[in-house]
Design a binder for these strands. Sequence first.
DNA 1: GCCAACGTTGGC
DNA 2: GCCAACGTTGGC
Length: 142
Amino acid sequence: MAFWLMKSEPDVFSWEDLVARGDAGEEWDGVRNYQARNNMRAMKPGEQAFFYHSRSEKAVVGICEVIAEAHPDSTSDDPRWDCVDVRALRPFAQPVTLEMCKADPRLADMVLVNNSRLSVQPVTRAEWQVICELGGIADTAG
DNA sequence: GCCAACGTTGGC
DNA sequence: GCCAACGTTGGC
């Protein structure tokens, strides 16, 4: 069981947009970066990912669930680009800002803190736990 | 809105 | 295969 973090600019596709899709979820298309794509290829249905609002907001706002393994990105004719499908699982009681992540020594090694440009990234079990705690919800990893 | 950091492209 | 030029991301 792996854990992930996926970024989106809220102006383009927000957490609220994903919630509005309901259980049908949404294709996580548009990723044109090999590392991010490789991370999506490693995802399995049932795994969870933090949903992060970049740019204006800079905060983790909820948790989504992978509902389909990687498949060709419908927004690209280039066979290199795959993506997964996700659906909203649960919102945070309060958003966990980038500032909070940087301030917490337990998250010092987090990819989000150290490589701000990777849009789909792995999260460790320990980091998952900390961010759930900061977000005011029970640890969903069980 | 700016620009640093990073990734990709393409000429050589 | 190197690296300069270019485009994009995302924090500030």
